[in-house]
Amino acid sequence: MSRNDDATPARPEWPLYEVFVRGKRGLNHVHVGSLHAPDATMALHNARNLYTRRNEGVSIWVVLAEDVTASSPDEKDPYFEPSGDKVYRHPTFYPIPEDVPHI
């Protein structure tokens, strides 16, 4: 029996998830890769199996790639330039009292 590709219904593409893992010694989550999964629960399980095989993670985030909004590296100069002239946003602008141990 031959297979007729035209008669076979197209399988829907699983959505793409971006995976972020927080390591045992890390304070933040780091993007480690991407994967396709039918839903967020399966994406979380697959991310655990794929990206934390050596027990190096303490927390995993999976985010639908279509929900991530990011600036373009090509636009970094005009995008971040406006903050350069706002010195008051830097802690060096304010005097630090001597009784404050650290900031």
Rank of each mutant, 00 (worst) to 15 (best):
K76D: 15
A43H: 03
G23A: 10
G57D: 04
H45K: 14
D39Q: 00
P38K: 14
H36A: 15
R53M: 08
G33D: 05
V68S: 01
T41V: 15
W61Y: 15
E81V: 00
A47Q: 01
H45Y: 05
H31D: 02
G84R: 09
T69F: 14
F80K: 02
V62A: 02
F20L: 14
F20T: 00
Y79K: 07
T52R: 01
N28W: 11
D85H: 11
V32Y: 08
V30K: 12
V21Q: 06
W61A: 01
N28T: 11
I60F: 12
V58C: 04
R22L: 05
R25N: 13
T69Y: 14
A65P: 02
K86I: 14
F80I: 04
P78K: 05
L64C: 01
N55L: 03
A43N: 01
W61K: 06
P82G: 02
G23N: 04
P73V: 07
V68F: 09
K76P: 09
R25C: 05
H36M: 11
A40Y: 07
V30S: 10
P78E: 08
S72A: 05
E81F: 12
N46Y: 06
H31K: 15
E81N: 10
N46E: 11
A65C: 01
D67F: 08
S72I: 07
H31F: 14
K24W: 01
D85M: 09
Y51I: 06
L50D: 10
P82D: 03
E75Y: 12
E81Y: 11
R54A: 09
K86M: 12
G57M: 03
V68N: 01
G84Y: 03
M42T: 15
Y51S: 00
N28K: 13
R25D: 12
S34H: 10
H36I: 09
V58L: 00
E56F: 01
T69W: 15
K76Q: 14
H31M: 09
L35S: 06
V19N: 00
R48F: 06
T52D: 14
R54W: 10
V58S: 05
A37H: 00
G26K: 10
E81D: 12
R22A: 03
L27S: 11
E66S: 15
V68H: 01
D67C: 06
E81G: 05
D74N: 10
L44Y: 04
L27M: 11
A65K: 14
I60E: 01
P73M: 02
G26E: 13
A37D: 01
D77P: 00
K76A: 13
V21N: 02
R53N: 07
H45N: 10
N49L: 13
D74M: 03
R22G: 03
A43M: 07
S59P: 02
N49G: 10
M42K: 15
L27E: 13
W61F: 15
L35P: 00
D77S: 00
R54N: 11
A37G: 02
F80S: 02
V32L: 06
H45G: 05
V58Y: 00
E66V: 13
E66G: 11
Y79D: 06
N55R: 09
F20H: 14
E81P: 00
V19Y: 04
H45A: 15
A37T: 05
S71F: 15
E66L: 08
